[in-house]
């Protein structure tokens, strides 16, 4: 029973972190048909920005709880600045090119952003433990857990619910769905598609950054942070169905639980299992478990 609860919580905690990052990735893909490798860098930028400012404000004597404000503020700031610059300044010139060529362009962007982080923040790792210390720890299933890690589950639930609500219950959501479904038709209906692209990209970037910003207090924020995340979230998005938000959710939970169980029972297969599932899903259901509906065009 203890093991079960532990595995479940570990799995959910890991899933939550994947959810936040992958939802951003999958929204960008759904709307813009860009599988964005640079998403890993957005994650890293979020982590660096929040760790940097949490440290700065803490030095100035602000209370630890203020860290939570900084986390969300950094995510939004990174989304607005990086997302805007990259979409308007670079991706705009690539629409219409081969999907795979655009992946490669974002790979180039990823390499560039990795080094820009180094130039801006230096090589020394940052610690931003204040928010984690503020929430203290609690006993669950026979072992101590930090409340901060558990709060990740709450945040990801909010993010997922917010995305669902935004997509299904608002006017903006309807516009987005229209663009996802058929770009040309949306243009002819008078939707400002370039504007939709910019907003989507900023939103997706902010979500990627939020993943990093929220994880930052639990890790040593150091260069190379983004490389690991990106393949994992690729796996999530592919398993769930590229462009599908419920898919990203299910994909994250699946991978999170599988990883937790394998680390506990067979530590050897931890990495292998994630990508094996990705390959199996691709072989038997190439469109992913929750493929968004596709229009057949002639």
């Amino acid at each position: 029973m203890e093991t079960f609860i532990t595995n479940l919580l570990n799995g959910l905690q890991y899933s939550s972190y994947l959810v936040i990052v992958s939802v951003g990735l999958t929204i960008i893909f759904g709307v813009m048909k860009i599988l964005n490798v640079a998403h890993g860098s957005f994650y890293a930028w979020g982590a660096y920005t929040s760790a940097f400012f949490i440290g700065k404000f803490s030095d100035m004597g602000w209370p630890d709880a203020f860290g939570f404000v900084i986390i969300f503020a950094s995510a939004i700031a990174v989304g607005l600045v990086l997302g805007f610059i990259i979409e308007r300044g670079l991706l705009r010139f690539m629409y219409g090119r081969d999907e795979v060529v655009i992946i490669l362009a974002t790979f180039g962007l990823f390499l560039v952003l990795e080094d820009v982080i180094l130039l801006v923040f230096g090589v020394d790792p940052y610690f931003a433990y204040q928010p984690m210390a503020y929430l203290e720890s609690v006993e669950v299933g026979g072992i101590t857990r930090d409340v901060y890690g558990l709060s990740l589950i709450l945040v990801s639930t909010l993010v997922a619910a917010g995305c669902w609500y935004g997509l299904n219950r608002t006017k903006w959501g309807n516009i987005l769905k229209a663009v996802i479904f058929d770009r040309e038709m949306s243009v002819s209906m008078g939707i400002n598609v370039p504007m939709v692209y910019t907003v989507t990209f900023i939103g997706g970037t902010a979500l990627g950054a939020l993943g990093g910003a929220y994880i930052a207090p639990t890790v040593s924020v150091a260069p190379g942070l983004g490389g690991e995340v990106i393949v994992l979230s690729f796996a999530v998005v592919v398993i769930g169905g590229m462009g599908s938000i419920p898919g990203a959710l299910i994909g994250s939970i699946l991978i999170g639980l599988l990883r937790a169980i394998s680390v506990h029972e067979f530590p050897q297969i931890e990495l292998f299992v994630i990508f094996a599932v990705m390959a199996v899903v691709l072989v038997f259901r190439p469109e992913g478990l929750f493929a968004p509906a596709k229009v057949r065009k002639i």
Binding site: Q13, Y14, A260, V263, H264
Partner: peptide, 22 residues
């Protein structure tokens, strides 16, 4: 019997820490 050998530079050890705690 359950020794942990995570990948170098993995960065997040929440799951491993649970396993060690138990």
């Amino acid at each position: 019997e359950k020794l942990q050998f995570p990948k170098i530079f993995a960065g997040q050890y929440g799951t491993e820490i649970s396993a060690l705690s138990l």
